[in-house]
């Protein structure tokens, strides 16, 4: 059975204790730390407590720990912050960390070198602490034409994979639903393009216009293509379940898990 990880962003707007208590009671033991929970004085203590009880963690982008901050790696890199963060992750036995690539102003053209330098530095910090490091695929925004997300097309991803051989890729299937200039086959080709370099796969649904993190159902675009997912890559659920009760959360996670159970995975190159 493929193990499903659940992002902490699925249960945000509440303190970490409330979120983890709900996920724990719903039977979830694999959690990806992420944005969403409210900071509280006991955040780190709670994460340690549930770690001791048996929850395993991964981490993604702007997590809430003893600090919380947003960042754009295309524009800034606070090395001291990432040293503290990666030290803490190593102490928490977190072995996978991923980030969003960041965005650049549509009026600037020289930011790419800064970005690559920042990624290299962060990759090194992670590597030194035996943490696998990845960057997530993004999408073109319909709303903000003053900024351009990086890694928002196949071409950019291919260039990135060539330029940064030590960094892995996080494929967000919901973000791919916001790519409107390529076919389903071309989207799925990412799995071959980044073969052996995919850190994890993020899953949720949206309306094709905005990254709304809605519930997955049988009509979600990638559901009929699960057999094409690489078999040994962790899947991370990112559909929002805020305010839902324990039983609803349990059912949603079980329904998602069931999508992956019993699916015969195609070996890369066979589809």
């Amino acid at each position: 059975m493929r193990e499903l990880w659940v992002s902490l962003s699925t249960y945000g707007g509440v303190p970490t204790r409330t979120a983890l208590e709900t996920l724990w009671t719903a039977g979830i033991r694999h959690v990806e730390l992420a944005i969403g929970v409210k900071p509280s004085a006991d955040t780190v203590e709670v994460l340690q407590e549930y770690g001791r009880r048996g929850i395993q963690y991964r981490a993604h982008h702007a997590i809430v720990w003893q600090e919380r901050r947003s960042f754009n790696l295309a524009e800034q890199f606070d090395r001291s912050y990432f040293e503290r963060l990666t030290d803490w992750m190593a102490a928490m036995n977190i072995t996978a960390y991923s980030v969003h690539p960041g965005s650049v102003s549509t009026h600037q053209s020289n930011s790419i070198n800064f970005w690559l330098d920042h990624l290299e530095q962060l990759a090194q910090l992670c590597h030194d602490r035996r943490i696998r490091f990845g960057v997530e695929t993004m999408y073109p925004s319909l709303f903000d034409h003053t900024r351009r997300e990086l890694l928002r097309s196949r071409t950019e991803i291919e260039q990135f994979l060539n330029l940064m051989p030590g960094v892995e890729l996080v494929v967000d299937m919901a973000h791919l639903n916001l790519w409107h200039d390529c076919s389903t086959e071309e989207k799925l080709h990412l799995f071959q393009l980044a073969r052996d370099r995919i850190l994890e796969i993020h899953i949720s649904d949206n309306d094709g216009l905005r990254d709304t993190h809605t519930a997955i159902n049988e009509k979600t675009w990638w559901v009929s293509h699960i057999a094409n997912f690489p078999s040994d890559v962790p899947i991370v659920l990112e559909s929002r379940m805020n305010h839902q009760g324990v039983e609803q959360v349990r059912q949603r996670v079980q329904q998602t898990q069931a999508l992956f159970d019993g699916v015969t995975v195609h070996e890369p190159g066979t589809h």
Binding site: S9, G13, K38, H61, A62, R68, H100
Partner: peptide
């Protein structure tokens, strides 16, 4: 009004 909203990157 939701003072605890968040997207993928920012609250």
């Amino acid at each position: 009004v939701d003072h605890h909203a968040y997207d993928d990157e920012r609250t």
